[in-house]
Write a protein that binds this DNA or RNA. Structure first.
Lengths: 226, 226
DNA sequence: CAATTTGCTGAAAATCTCCTGAAAATGTTT
DNA sequence: AAACATTTTCAGGAGATTTTCAGCAAATTG
């Protein structure tokens, strides 16, 4: 789960980033509206957190522009003011939720989670593929009743693949969704992590069919067949 | 938005119909598989909701048949059991989503909405020529309901030809579009790959007319006639 | 009907992709 | 700072794909 945080106050930005990373989100920061907009429009993020007041392009403007382009990434808007006026403006611009500063981190977290959950229906924090399940709330990963312990990156990779089960995902897609945008990662790194996942979720279950498949020349796929 | 609901239990069918109508969907009901299939194949519906277990033709069978005919109306499958086997079977048959009974109506609604949303949100990347279809998103290639596995270059070549179906494409055009601009490729390489494609998409279907045609002196063409 | 061109095909050669063990770099805990 | 875990790069090799080559068949030309 990748989040873009657009916030000009470095201190606040970093503390939020850190908090979200402890919750296993991948977080990129943009310190001004322009770069924020540029990054957001690539469409690689699952949630955007926009500050209402920003140097250059402000939160509402970014929001509006993205919506006009047909992008509907969930947006959480942060604002200093409590004014009803602001809230209305933000929602009109296309924001999905609103949070007034100062706020408790827990509150931010709750709303971000609500936004990430929304597209897949009601309360859904569990991904399942055949006999493998992954819980994005508790970070439990279980196959055939057995608990599996994963590292942060392994978890992020598996989550991404499970969100796209039965679809082929290329190494490039994986890199841009699972790693930060400024990370300079070789395709081989993905291969290595696929290897780690196989060692943990396929090899220990020789009775079951393997779930991770490589489609040579295209990428990888998680699912039962092929 | 028009929905076809194929469900033999009248009570359930009506309560679902009523709920969806409150959400401004237009809902038709078929109480058995045969009529369900007949109605569905007219292609007038935006979403199909199929019960897994039906008198006569069951949900999976309907699903399979429709897909083989190249119809890709989004399908939501309802199944009584939680069995992994069932889910897999349904998805293999070509369902887009499934829901296990009993379910909360809200959940059904959420999924139906998700299915109706998809076409507007994401453009279906599917190319079709007669009974051959190629999905540039999932990389699935299917002819007459049969999956065809292609290598990366074969896929790229077929994609290019299908984007220009019924048009003649020269070997030079193919080279410059399917290979990198700096690749130094002999025309014969294209001939070889055309051979590979024929072996995979024409030869295994002797009952159908071949789709790949050589126009001596000019190039190749993909399409029904000539 | 020869002579030439164009395309097909089997098989060899060249190249590329992916996997893996291990080392290096980075991060975390104690 | 040491011990440990995680992330990332590197290098070698197995196997699949891509590309070339060479001989043959079919069409075209004169």
């Amino acid at each position: 789960m990748k989040i873009l945080l657009v916030e000009d106050e470095h201190k606040i930005a970093h503390s939020i980033k850190q908090g979200l990373e402890q919750e296993h989100f991948v977080v990129d920061i943009a310190y001004d509206g322009k770069t924020g907009y540029d990054l957001a429009s690539e469409g690689l993020y699952d949630v955007l957190i926009l500050d209402r007041l920003l140097p250059g392009l402000d939160g509402v403007a970014i929001c509006q522009q993205l919506r006009e382009e047909g992008k509907h990434t969930p947006i959480l808007m942060l604002t200093a003011k409590t004014q009803v006026q602001d809230k209305v403006e933000g929602l009109l611009a296309g924001a999905d939720d609103y949070l007034t500063k100062p706020f408790a981190f827990e509150e931010l977290l709750a709303r971000v989670k609500a936004l990430t959950r929304r597209p897949s229906g009601m309360t859904r924090h569990r991904l399942e593929v055949v006999d493998l399940s992954l819980d994005t709330d508790t970070f439990d990963v279980v196959r055939s009743g057995k608990r599996i312990v994963l590292s942060a990156k392994e978890f992020a990779l598996l989550e991404y693949m499970m969100r796209h089960h039965n679809k082929i995902v290329s190494k490039e897609q994986i890199i841009s969704h699972v790693w930060n945008y400024d990370a300079d990662i070789l395709p081989n790194t993905v291969e290595v992590f696929i290897g780690y996942l196989r060692a943990k979720i396929d090899r220990p279950f020789p009775k079951e069919k393997p779930l991770i498949h490589t489609i040579r020349g295209f990428g990888y796929k998680i699912g039962e067949k092929e």
